[in-house]
Design a protein around this nucleic acid. Structure first.
Lengths: 107, 107
DNA sequence: AAACCATGTCAGATTTTCTGACTCATTAGT
DNA sequence: ACTAATGAGTCAGAAAATCTGACATGGTTT
């Protein structure tokens, strides 16, 4: 519904390209996946596929690591933000539900 | 200057992904390159890298081919459009030049 | 000191991509 | 009508890219 089709989120980038775009080593990229900071898709044969938003995310992660933040803390922070965002969505949906009920709209 | 950095034009997509996104065969994609309809970049090792605008372009090409248009004609059409566009840019630059001269602006 | 962290590196296997060639049915040009 | 060109499938062998798992290491925590 919002942003239904976006280049930014299509998983099309291989690890080699990722490495060039971010300046990170393949080892680092794989490690951050292992630590559940990024979630590439996989091709049928098992190759990782990233999106442009993964590129951005990975650069943020790299900055934090440089600042001495550990992957574990980065992960906690991500989970926190994710949760807040979910709640926001739920709130929004409830409001929309009220509106629909009030005006007797059927989908 | 206009559109300085865009995901849409970054050459990051391998031929395998391209094939999935367009539904074309690798053979077709390589053939259209041979006929100078698309211009992938190459990795250091020689692998083709496409952009999302290449994806769009390739889908347009595929449609025309289906309509019986030959690659040669498609190419001529591309060149024509390209030329028009160049002229447009030149005109715009000349106008800007006039303005700058009139107001005595130095870069 | 022991454990963990983030990363480098190496080996061997697998996947992906490359080029070049041969083929072939269908047009297009002469 | 004949010949040439087109668009595309397929195959082979080589080369490039990626994968996992393991071992190594210097820093940090505990």
């Amino acid at each position: 519904m919002s942003d239904p089709f976006s280049y930014k989120n299509k998983k099309v980038i291989s690890i080699g390209v990722m490495k060039e775009l971010t300046g990170l080593s393949e080892r680092q990229i794989r490690y951050y996946e292992e630590r559940k900071l990024i979630f590439p898709e996989r091709s049928a044969g098992g190759s990782r596929k990233f999106s442009f938003s993964d590129v951005e995310l990975l650069m943020d992660i790299a900055n934090k690591i440089e600042d001495g933040v550990q992957t574990y803390e980065i992960r906690q922070e991500m989970i926190r933000k994710q949760k807040e965002q979910n709640e926001q969505v739920v709130r929004q949906k409830m409001i929309q539900g009220q509106i629909n009920a009030q005006f007797g709209i059927r989908k």
